[in-house]
Design a protein around this nucleic acid. Structure first.
Lengths: 131, 131
DNA sequence: GGTATTTATCATACTGATATGATCAATATA
DNA sequence: TATATTGATCATATCAGTATGATAAATACC
């Protein structure tokens, strides 16, 4: 039906994996890529974006890698996928650029509660909730 | 957040427009494209796919055009967008190929009710519900 | 300081969704 | 039957997301 961009799914899997690291020690890209089965070079770029977004912290050199920038229970799914969603996020099922209570599209009233619950899921669920 | 493919949005807008035609007379591609503001040649192909899928009926020649193949209250949104969703529809937020109650991903239990409501929206809502 | 290890960055390629333009085929009507 | 109109189809073009490979820059450790 609706789906997240591939990269956003990679990001969720990666952050979830990092969150489950004992002691919270840094994880190398190679480790992560192997564990969640995504291309290493591509993941490298994705993790870098997450670091830029303040979701992860990165360290170079031996003993380097990626770790969470915040406690897992303070990291929402929305924060993780945010950097990978299209800038022109369409909140409207019919794809109208403007669609709200004042100027609703034909589907607005029926879609609204569903869309809100969807949004809430990503805003409220944290990485710590993933089990 | 999550969004439909552009083409699926075009399809919804087009079918909704066709459904609002007085007498249900056929609508030309040029009329529809102008009304819902999408590229005409591209829409032509999209409408053809909807005809193949049994959602619309098409007629060529003068007086030709597209009309609904079924009453609007028997046409669900799922039927309209179906032909334009990726074949490998990922039901899993983490993008796993296999994810169900028996073999759940880390987000499965929290996502399930939201995903179900989402699916239900498209399965239950009909073109006649668009106002 | 030298070196191995790791992330950062750059250049490029691939792929499917989106889009454009031209031509073919059907058909209502005169 | 001739013709104008309309959808069907084909050949490309464009663009963003996804991906690969190579090189640069930082850093722990000897």
């Amino acid at each position: 039906m609706l789906s997240l961009p591939q990269t956003a799914e990679y990001a969720l899997r990666a952050v979830n994996f990092i969150a489950n690291t004992p002691n919270g020690r840094p994880r190398r890209v190679s480790e992560i890529a192997a564990a969640i089965k995504v291309p290493q070079n591509y993941l490298s770029k994705t993790l870098h974006q997450l670091a830029q977004a303040g979701v992860l912290r990165s360290m170079r050199g031996p003993t380097g890698g990626f770790q969470l920038a915040h406690p897992a229970n303070r990291l929402t799914l929305a924060q993780v996928i945010g950097p990978f969603l299209p800038v022109t996020g369409r909140p409207c099922v019919l794809g109208r650029t403007r669609c709200n209570d004042a100027a609703p599209c034909a589907a607005h009233h029926r879609w609204k509660p569903v869309g809100q619950q969807l949004e809430k899921f990503f805003e409220v669920t944290t990485i710590a909730d993933l089990k």
